[in-house]
Computed example of a mutant assay.
Amino acid sequence: MKHNRLGKSELYISEIGLGCMSLGTDKVKATALVHEAIEKGINFLDTADLYDEGLNEEIIGEAIKGKRADIVLATKVGNHWEKGKAGWSWDPSKAYIKSAVKESLRRLQTDYIDLYQLHGGTLDDPISETIEAFEELKQEGLIRYYGISSIRPNVIREYVERSNIVSVMSQYSILDRRPEEQILPLLEEKGISLIARGPVAKGILTDNGAAKAEKGYLDYDKEELSSLRDVLIEMGEGSRDLAHTAIRYVLASPAVAAVIPGASSLEQLLHNIAASEAHQLSPAELETIKRLSKENRFEQHR
C-alpha cells in the first residue's frame, strides 16, 4: 500500500483510507472490518462525532486498542448533538470545539487525535475563533494537526489563507469534478492535501452500479451515466474494473493524498484495498476521461 504525506504534516497516510461512516452499528462486524483494513495495509481511519451519535467513534476506539501507534486517526467536530433535542445544530465556536474534543478522545480511548477536522463551515462562522480553538488544541497536545471537511470554495479559501490546515476533505470523483476548477490547484500550490470522499459516486462507478445510475447524479441524467459507464468499463478491460478506474482517477491528482471509500462488507473493503494494486491511468486515459465526462462547476459558495 502506497503512503502519501498529508500536506506539510509529519503524517503519512495510506492512499486508500477507511471511511468509517458506513461501518454500521454492529460492533462485532464493524470491528472485524477495521481489523481487516489494518491487516491489509490501511493506516488512515476517518470517523466523526456525528456518526451514529458518537457510537462510531466508540467502535473505532475499541477496534484500535493495541494498534493506536500504527494508526493515523481522523475525526470531525462542529455538529452539536444534545440529548432530548431532535437533530444536530451547527456550532463552530471555540468553547464547543474545546469541549467536544474531550468527548471524542473519551469515545476513541486515546489521548490525542492525529487529524481533527471542522465538519462543514460557512462564511458566517466566527472563523478566527474556530482557528484559535484548533491552534490551542495543537499546543495542548490533544490534536496533532487540523483540517476542514467542506465542498464550499469560499470557505476553503478562507482557511487556506488564514489557518494552518494540512488537509481539506471533499467529495471528488469522475462524476463530480468540481474540485478541479478551484480547489485542487489552490491546495497543490499551498502544499495542502485533499482527502477525497465519494470516489465511486454512491456506487454508480462500480461494475454493479447500473441500477444506481437510474436516478441520475448531479448534472448527469441516466442516459449520460449509462454511456459514460460503458466507456469506462471498456477502458479498464483486462487491467482494472470500473471502481478501480474511478479510484485511480481521483488519486492521479498530485494534491490528493488519499481516497476514503466506505465499506459495509468484507467484500467491499477488500475490493477497495485492491485499487492500490490496480494499474495507474495513463496520460491518454486521463485525457479521455476528462474529455468524455463533465467539467462540473460549483454554482454556490464560489
Rank of each mutant, 00 (worst) to 15 (best):
G262R: 07
I195Y: 03
K65C: 03
S163Y: 11
E82A: 02
L55K: 15
Y172N: 09
V168E: 09
K76I: 10
A86C: 01
D176V: 04
V231Q: 12
S150D: 08
N56S: 14
Y159H: 05
T47M: 11
E237S: 12
P185A: 08
S276Y: 02
G198V: 09
N296S: 05
I16P: 03
I260P: 00
H301R: 11
S150F: 05
A95G: 07
K67H: 15
L11M: 12
E223S: 12
A37K: 08
S265T: 15
K215A: 13
L105M: 08
E82W: 02
Y116S: 05
G147E: 11
L281I: 04
E140K: 15
S167K: 07
P92N: 10
S163A: 14
L205N: 03
S167Q: 06
I64D: 11
L142D: 08
E299T: 14
D111F: 08
H80S: 00
L187C: 04
A275Q: 14
M169T: 15
K83A: 06
A246W: 02
S149W: 06
E234H: 09
S104Y: 08
G78Q: 03
N56M: 09
S226Y: 04
W90C: 02
L232R: 05
L142K: 15
K294I: 14
E285Q: 15
A48T: 14
H301V: 04
I183E: 01
S128Q: 09
I148L: 12
L50C: 11
L228V: 00
M235K: 12
I204S: 06
E214N: 08
P283N: 14
Y217T: 06
K40M: 07
S265K: 06
D114M: 10
K202T: 09
E299D: 13
H271S: 10
L11G: 04
E140T: 11
G7D: 09
H80C: 06
A246Y: 00
S226C: 03
Y220K: 02
A252R: 04
E161A: 15
E82L: 05
H279M: 13
W81T: 08
S150M: 07
